[in-house]
Amino acid sequence: MKANMVTAINNALELSMKENDRIVLLGEDIGKDGGVFRVTEGLQAKFGESRVMDTPLAESGILGASIGMALAGMHPVPEVQFAGFMFLGFSQLINHASRYRSRTRSIYPVPMVVRTPVSGGVRTLEHHSDSPEAYYSHIGGLIVVEPSTPYDAKGLMIKALRMNDPVVFLEPTKLYRLFKEDIPDDMYEVPIGKAKLLSEGSDLSIITYGTMAPLVKDVVAKKKVSADVLDLRTINPLDEEAILASARKTGRVIIVHEASMSFGVGAEIAARIAENAIFELKAPVMRVASPSFPYPMPGYEKYYIPNELKVSQAIDHIMAVQD
């Protein structure tokens, strides 16, 4: 089937719900309205109100109740309408979803998939464009995935729903309908914890994910540089093996993400490269990211998010370093 990311996730949810009747969806406006981005469109009509629930407007309730359902043997898929509003339920993820398993020595795992749209570039209101992946990754105990293609979105969702872990499933708003691609009609899995090479090259490595993945791919194609472009797909746990292999191969690494620079995912990757492969590098690792403050209002976003020029300049810069 030809699918964009919205229809790919919708399809993954439908197939998974058919496979496992313990999967239920809950969230604000996900039933009758089909979700503000239409990701759950049609699912209430197909599975009924007991499996696709419009909830009251309360994120701590949505996430906390989902944890409760998971503890009782169900596999809930809560949707939080925008990542910026997940902070109202942050406590439930950080204090509980992340550690029920370890506190109970695996007696009480928390199988659930928390879906939420992330990142900007589409001129939304305040709090609708946050990129919070580092927060959820930092705590440990939460799997954090962020697809950049319809194919990966479907496969990661199916895989996440067959696991016995809490998964934070981040869906870049900007990529929801950016493009369509052919994906299998049937169920298939994309492994969690494995990055994907979007292009292969020998001169440098660009490590990225989410909204920045298609942008980086474009810049690399336009500049005709020979680059590994590694799409993480899973942020936590990191695919250290793929990162180090590429860093060792090319010796030049740029990390590109939309989330703000300080204390971000880029810092974690750079540190791991420094710890394991610093003597194999030809140039210092570079980061391209948004500046270190909260996402601005839409009139300013084009001055905030990394753009093609920024990525392109970083490539020129790192290639100019003599080894």
Binding site: L57, F85, R123, L125, M297, E301
Partner: peptide, 23 residues
């Protein structure tokens, strides 16, 4: 139109700016 300057009323107006996260 999407500018923080629209949230920057002098304090004399006795109003906070628009607040989006519900409640």
């Amino acid at each position: 139109r999407g500018y923080e300057e629209g949230s920057s009323l002098p304090r004399e107006f006795g109003a906070l700016p628009i607040i989006v996260p519900v409640s």
